[in-house]
Amino acid sequence: MDWDVDELLAEPTTEVEQDYSSLCTQWLNERMAPELLPFAEDVVTRVTERLRAQLETLQSSIGTANATGYRSVLIQIELERIKFVLRSYLRTRLSKIDDYGQYIQANPSVLLNLSSTERQYLLRHQQLLHRHYMTSFLRELPMKMNKLDDTIGRTSMVAAPDMDSPVFCMVNETIEENLRVAENEYVTLDRGDILLLKYSAIANYVRAGAVSLI
């Protein structure tokens, strides 16, 4: 009875299947990762192109029997599924861009993880926020208190993702080295393992695809 892991981790065979599968993985990772992951530009572009082509096929069939037949029903159901994943993926990213806007702006390497439309959104939103805080109360405060990036004691105004917050993950590929999770505490990551542990310990493996967030 060895259907589970291999079945689950079976590689999709065609590029079309691979792209959709990878889009779903990116979506799940993005939903559960505390940080903003690199934008899945290639996959999103290809899936969106196919989506558009499919919509056009559907629209060009209007008036024919194909438009209302059951094949059309299947096509439309699938379109809604794809749209849902893309929508949720993009909006998950915007949520994080809103929460960690200043942090992202201040870190060029993180800024690279954004698509160009996301970057535009980020810049304009930060301007809006700045203006809002200024008109609401900041401009009434003494000049030296007008800033949006002070640090008081341990806490910075620039909110950064908490990389140590725990996540559930599944190991896709056995990782050879032992993983340090605390002082004198190591875990092994074997294919199929499921763990709850701090994100920072596996962040690199998530990006590389060896571990998925679930």
Binding site: D99, I152, T155, S156, M157, A159, D162
Partner: peptide, 9 residues
Amino acid sequence: MDYYDIDGI
């Protein structure tokens, strides 16, 4: 989000 965390405050 510590700075803005209501429970933290």
